[in-house]
Design a protein around this nucleic acid. Structure first.
Lengths: 224, 224
DNA sequence: GATAGTTTCATACAACTGTTTGAAATGCAA
DNA sequence: TTGCATTTCAAACAGTTGTATGAAACTATC
């Protein structure tokens, strides 16, 4: 395995190019040119283009998941087995938002790569994301412990909405800046985390107090 | 312009194929084979592949936007110029969710196409989406009229989060079903609309009462 | 220093892509 | 029917893509 210089040169060149120009128009030839290695090296070291992409994504997303679980574990230990619901949401969306937003996002290749991976959905990444359910289940379990009375479906909707706000903020951060004409400060990552956490907590607190009653169903609608 | 038979055959074949298999692996040759027309017909009638995709997307998204604005207008007229905030959110997310979710989504090609367009981000569609800011500004304006006291940034965040929940629900509906093991009923579209609206309203109501104070900032954090 | 295993390299391959071309077919007005 | 414009068609084009090949270079072991 020698020095692995070629292998890691490919990895970092690929990550940078994908981050900058997206998966759609970066070819293996672009990557090997940027890494100053031979074209055949990609297939030799990774097997195929898709496996290269998969390795890039797995590495980064394992890191995020680990960070998430660490925060969750810390919060549960601090609460004696039951984490506060806001701490759970913070552990869920904090690492992702901190990784992809703020001043880091301009400089860190890893962050920009993960943003790309979240915007463009290519087959190898989709396959990996589909296996992420187990990871999310751990957060669902923590929420169940935190709010034993709450209906199961409400917990899942809360989890889902928290991820929705976090991911959508990452995906559409440019559009939000343009829409709000800079009023929404996308560099204040901690502020955004707290905003997402606060709304997620409210969403959960507001939805019915006990079992599966649909929230908002009491409101009248105007149309058909 | 004759009967336009070829043109519309291409449009509907393309929409169906893109809906079923995504933009990534549908070629012009697939489309013309499915439409039983000649390969050159696409370039003759649409100019290029991208313009074909653009026309498909523009048609569908104009329809949704029109529906949104109709609902918004009705709500504002009913309120004498000021729509209730929940009615505004309902006008924003209702048409999209109804279009892409529920029993329709299984059968309607248009709905499945729009879901694809929301998941895979191809250049021609991205270009069009970037021009959607003007449309969203109308909703921001309605929100401003509805809640004159609220800080501008909070309104944009509210708008942003509402869209986040709606789009994420469409994008990840399969994963949410799997994660919740069917507990989240993705076929109850009206229930979902009301859930999203309720959370959006709460998000806005909960964020500071007046000026740009960041919500949740009063909460302590455990980490660094 | 010969040997075996790994890694690099230039090159070719085979397939597929969107687009163009120029001629045939069609429709329609005079 | 003649003439003209629109539309269809088969075929080819020019370019790109990821991958495979087999020889060369390198590395470490004996």
């Amino acid at each position: 395995m020698a020095s692995d210089h070629t292998r890691s040169a490919i990895l970092s060149a690929a990550e940078r190019l994908y981050a900058d120009r997206g998966f759609g128009d970066v070819t293996l030839r672009d990557i090997v040119a940027s890494a100053s290695v031979n074209l055949a090296a990609v297939n030799y070291h990774f097997g195929s283009k898709d496996e290269l992409i998969a390795e890039l994504f797995v590495t980064r997303s394992l890191a995020t998941n680990r960070e998430r679980l660490n925060e969750l574990k810390a919060a549960e230990e601090a609460g004696g087995g039951r984490a506060a619901i806001d701490a759970i949401f913070r552990a869920l969306v904090g690492p992702t938002l901190r990784g992809c937003l703020g001043p880091t996002s301009g400089g860190s290749t890893a962050a920009r790569f993960m943003i790309r991976a979240s915007i463009e959905s290519v087959p190898p990444i989709r396959r990996i994301k589909n296996r992420e359910v187990d990871h999310l289940r751990k957060f669902a379990a923590a929420m169940r412990r935190s709010l034993p009375g709450r209906a199961e479906a409400d917990l899942y909707w809360g989890l889902h909405f928290a991820l929705a706000m976090a991911h959508h903020t990452i995906r559409e951060r440019e559009r939000l800046t343009k829409l709000s004409e800079g009023l929404c400060d996308l560099d204040d990552v901690q502020g955004i985390v707290e905003r997402v956490v606060a709304v997620s907590v409210m969403a959960l607190a507001g939805s019915g107090t006990r079992s599966g009653e649909k929230p908002g169903a009491q409101r009248a609608r105007q149309g058909s």
